[in-house]
Design a binder for these strands. Structure first.
Lengths: 333, 333
DNA sequence: TACAGTCCTGTAAGCGCTCACAGTTTCCCC
DNA sequence: GGGGAAACTGTGAGCGCTTACAGGACTGTA
């Protein structure tokens, strides 16, 4: 359809200089006279020249692209705001660079092997990895590839060299301290999966706050972050600890499940039982009553991960980051 | 860090054949003897060879990548489920191919010019465009680039050659017919922005259903898809048409705004007024009462856009698609 | 005037792959 | 056994860019 785009050689010809000089102008290297530079810039503008990335990549051994890989067994996990927010943050920083962003959603075995291909074929200069579960194979793959890799979140078994994570523990602690400050004394928690760093951290935060205040840390039900597990956990808690006056759920989904069960059991929220969640997704605004929750700096995570990767690509040595969370007060406490 | 990856030439040497033959094996072209093929495959496996995409791109003039561009003035628009679902659908099809997915969120002027660069530098073989507003500059840019382009949604001013859209009109009509079947007679609507194809289509659907049933189509308030405009529209409707017994809102957000206003005015939902929204986002499940809504096949849109683009890249001539919506019945009707 | 040191510029050798072309071998049928 | 067609293989010329390297043109100093 369209005619072949102009090449660097054509620019050189038109500007009356050599290809080497044009290349220097494009990459604004030193040792180019103003005269040549102007001539080249004129020719570039007239021809509408844009360097061919493939050719440049081949010559420089750099791709000018990074990959954001999101890994999960459950495709539904993609379908939450977490996802969109991270990307928004990543994109914001990418826009300031000349890098291109490649996206890999590795839900299936197939997706995983595609990720490997991308790493092996050197289609990207670096990778940002959002491995949503422990011991994710993608993590090993990225490591083996030798490409600079920044992780979002940590796993329990090993801490990657470069990561950005939210302060799960601090966030949970703040949430529970808020409950204590509001006069609650019999505070329960529904934990997330304890074989994840996030699950552990939030549980730790709960215990710290509660123990520090001289309260019992024995009102515990274990969930898996899902709404159903929140409901189940709440039932157990009501059975075992009918005296509870507050619940800290390690995810909003679990908090929503808990709210349902509380309502069914005639408990008023927040009068009888206060509820706090974790993970401010839009959902939380529309619960009855509106849910107090710990907001994770998800977009900021995306931004910081990208900044960190860009620094790595520039040969700098950034340091990993733990970003603060924020307690969002609403009607449920 | 890692040593340079093996090249095709090294494979050829090890397999005792020429580079041409290796290339043929890789691209499984014809005219390769079983013997050669096996030797090459063995060498590839032993060396862990993966073709260098940049070199291949340069030689073939094909990039092996497509770009998904999402355009919007309002960065917040990215942060909804629509976004995540589309990508999930796109990814599902991409996974079946050897294509790589590049993502461009063109919120700013800067993002827009990056999109242009990508097109010009021929970094991608085709583009999927989700232009969220009318007369989007990206649309023109994609067109000018001559790259195969598939649009998600249509604009009013001109219908792109290849697009995938949801059946806004049919969906709205079905929703209103549902209200009629439930015995509602004084049915109002809060429209979306009427300078969008979606806004128009949903309004048309409302009118069709209502007129066909011999009812009045005069209970109309105009909104802009936002929650605030839904609330404002509902106020107007209650003032002008206190007899209304149902409302069809052209978006869930507006429906939520309407629900609030109805509650404030002592109207029971659905007893006094039934409410239907459009756009099944997670939000809709957690309203009080749960919102009946028209679900758009968003993930399917992503899938079909990608399929269409893949066909275009294969030189086929696909036909544009209008995907059916689905009425999700909940407590608000 | 001679000479070293700077700047600038052109030249050409790759980067790793594909693909037309030509050359060789094999196959099949008369 | 001969001939042509078909199957296979190697060769080498690009694809469009970067980047040593080798000069050439100046400049300033002795």
């Amino acid at each position: 359809m369209t005619t072949r785009p102009p090449t660097l050689e054509e620019v050189a010809q038109r500007a009356g200089v050599s290809t080497g000089t044009v290349s220097r102008v494009i990459n604004n290297a030193r040792h180019v006279s103003d005269k040549s530079r102007r001539a080249v810039e004129k020719a570039i503008a007239e021809l509408g020249y844009v360097p061919n990335t493939a050719a440049r990549s081949l010559a420089t051994q750099r791709r000018g692209a990074v990959v954001l890989a999101i890994s999960s067994d459950d495709p539904a996990l993609f379908a939450n705001l977490f996802f969109a927010e991270v990307i928004t943050g990543v994109n914001a920083v990418i826009e300031e660079t000349d890098l291109q962003l490649m996206l890999v959603l590795a839900a299936s075995e197939r997706g995983r092997s595609r990720f490997g291909k991308i790493l092996q074929s050197r289609s990207a200069d670096g990778v940002m990895l959002l491995a949503l579960k422990e011991n994710d194979p993608l993590s090993t793959m990225a490591e083996d590839s030798g490409l600079p890799t920044v992780h979002g979140g940590r796993s329990l078994d090993r801490t990657p060299q470069w990561y950005v994570d939210a302060d799960n523990r601090g966030g949970a602690r703040t949430a529970v301290e808020h409950l204590i400050a509001a006069g609650r004394r019999n505070i329960a928690t529904i934990t997330g999966e304890l074989d994840t760093h996030a699950g552990q951290g939030r549980y730790m935060g709960y215990r710290e706050a509660v123990v520090l205040a001289g309260l019992s840390d024995q009102r515990v039900a274990h969930g898996d972050f899902s709404e159903a597990s929140g409901a189940a956990g709440m039932k157990l808690l009501l059975d075992d600890h009918p005296d509870l006056d507050a619940v800290f759920a390690a995810s909003d989904a679990m908090a929503i499940g808990a709210l349902d069960v509380l309502r069914e059991n005639g408990k008023r929220v927040p009068e009888d039982v206060a509820v706090v969640g974790f993970n401010d997704v839009v959902t939380a605004r529309n619960t009855q009553p509106a849910l107090t929750t710990v907001r994770q700096p998800i977009e900021a995570m995306g931004r910081e991960m990208t900044r960190m990767l860009v620094r790595l690509l520039n040969g700098e040595q950034p340091t990993s980051l733990i970003l603060p969370t924020e307690l969002v007060l609403r009607a449920s406490t």
